[in-house]
Design a protein around this nucleic acid. Sequence first.
DNA 1: ACAAAGTGTAGACTATAGTCTATACCTTGT
DNA 2: ACAAGGTATAGACTATAGTCTACACTTTGT
Lengths: 120, 120
Amino acid sequence: MLISELSKRTELSIHTLRYYEKYGLFKGEVDEKVKTNNYKHYDESLIEKVELIKEAKEIGFTLAEIKGLLDDWYSNKLSAEKKVEVLNVKIAEIDAKILQLQQVRKFLVDGIEDVKRGDC
Amino acid sequence: MLISELSKRTELSIHTLRYYEKYGLFKGEVDEKVKTNNYKHYDESLIEKVELIKEAKEIGFTLAEIKGLLDDWYSNKLSAEKKVEVLNVKIAEIDAKILQLQQVRKFLVDGIEDVKRGDC
DNA sequence: ACAAAGTGTAGACTATAGTCTATACCTTGT
DNA sequence: ACAAGGTATAGACTATAGTCTACACTTTGT
């Protein structure tokens, strides 16, 4: 698919997608058979990858971190053990974030109790 | 306490604290009895408030959102019902974030399974 | 009394992550 | 064939959240 379809299906602007591509989060392929243009084609599987990027961003990972993870993942320079290790580090980071969220959540729930008791 | 103590105890730089103060997240009080300077004094209770700001930031709230919440909270313009409502909205946002984290976590855990099965 | 360290303000600078504009070329429908 | 719309690239611009510098004044230790 071309950039506009990718944009529609991922609900990211063409600008943002190009920014991500230039950043190195993914890349499209120019059809070598076509000499008249250099339109880039994006694979069906990219949809899922972009969705993951979106999720990762929303939960607070930076583009640099996401790129690092994707690079490691698709490099084939990493052994299976290393890949598992990389993933476990990220899982630990996520668990830490979940804990923080639960702390702030508790703070807010306590706040509601205070209000209901008239302490505020 | 003065700014340097606040900085040490919150582990935020003086620059950042001044930025937050100027942003309106909190404010120090100038001692009216002292005419020679306009050093600002910060209340003991601010430590906890700043910690909350730090937590909220880390879990992805922007300064604008945090300011909105704090303003509502300390405004006394809100009825108890409104306050509870505001808090419930934030709790719902946090729950959504936790769900997202769990989704990405699952993705990574599945990734580990793939690696272990040799799919990657 | 003097130097060193603390405080306040303003404004410049940086990094991250876009977002937009201009320009030029290409494709498609009629 | 031609207008309308799609694509690529480069570079300018924006917003958020700091971070740093310069300058002036104040406080404190010796």
